[in-house]
Design a protein around this nucleic acid. Structure first.
Lengths: 179, 179
DNA sequence: CCATCAACGTAGCAGGTGCTACAGTTTTAT
DNA sequence: ATAAAACTGTAGCACCTGCTACGTTGATGG
């Protein structure tokens, strides 16, 4: 594995744990055993570093979705998706995605572009999963957008609400969709 | 109106337009016709300034919801809420709320505390509105959480998606809830 | 054996950050 | 009129930011 990719993975791990918003080169470099000098050397600029980190995180997210077995109903798929969404690796990746999307809310680069790029493939992966779980070909994309929006919204208020509350909301959404 | 409140309103206007994440005292002060020196004098610290800005914005949001007439069905209420949510003053306030929530995602103060505080009264206002539009007493809070999460999620991807797409997703949600 | 080039350390630059010290001026209350 | 309080301009401090200039390694390939 090239040094650049190695650093991108390590930087992603660090950003997933400490957040993307306050990210700065020197503390990041110290945490992953290198220097700001080296980060700029390998990535060219902080923006390209961030781009790489967002790409790595997005790839990890997609991998989790693709390896989640399909459910036997859309309702079951939605609740199952929330389980993988709200814990483990995917939860951290999505939390960082929310940060990136917030940073891009006012058009700031490189966040806006990177978020746009990753959102497309992400929604497609969700739609595929819903199709495999019984959603109709035509309904899947809009269903994916709805589920994605709701999950991201719950993620935003994640530190606020009880896990049980979020679970109940997801259950409401799942049965509303099915009903 | 005291000078402090006056500055808080002006700072809120500026933050609503330029974002909360990159906010710094000197450019803000210059834009609203004062100096960083004065902002610190009147607010004590940047954190307290941010607190005040978030409070003003939240109050404006609540005022909009409270002045929105009730609909004659929950389904109609949800789509009508999205209309006021996705345009005008409320859209900007919610966009900034999303920024604040993202800033608080990793527990950073004063954002985490301020977001928690405003979210309570905000959800209560949504629930009240849904009750007035025919939602049952018991279902209203969870419905409010669901609607709020979905709207915030759509707001996050607002710059990405077409307005029509978001509208369709909201329509799906509304009819799913009603059905 | 030597040249080449990627990899890296040290030091530093220019600009921005929140915030403060000091010295006033204006307004208010008595 | 006088004392107190509220307000404000000017400079500047200590720190952080992304990034760069310069010099040094260490491995590789002809």
């Amino acid at each position: 594995m090239g040094k650049r990719q190695e650093l991108a993975e390590a930087a992603t791990d660090h950003a997933l744990e400490h957040g993307l918003i306050g990210l700065s080169l020197r503390p990041l470099a110290a945490a992953i055993g290198t220097s700001d000098r080296m980060l700029i050397y390998h990535f060219g600029s902080k923006d390209e570093l961030v781009d790489a980190v967002l790409d790595v995180s997005n790839e990890r997210s997609i991998a989790v979705i693709r390896s989640t077995p399909a459910a036997d109903s859309v309702e079951a798929a939605v609740t199952a998706l929330w389980d993988v969404f709200s814990s483990g690796q995917l939860q951290r990746c999505q939390r960082m995605y929310v940060e990136a999307a917030a940073l891009g809310l006012f058009g700031r680069e490189p966040y806006a572009t990177s978020v746009r790029r990753s959102n497309d493939v992400w929604l497609a992966a969700i739609a595929d999963h819903l199709r495999a779980s019984g959603a109709s070909e035509s309904a899947a994309p809009r269903l994916a957008s709805l589920v994605d929006a709701t999950f991201n919204g719950l993620m935003l208020d994640g530190p606020l609400e009880d896990d049980a509350v979020a679970r109940a909301v997801v259950q409401d959404l799942a049965s509303a969709i099915a009903g």
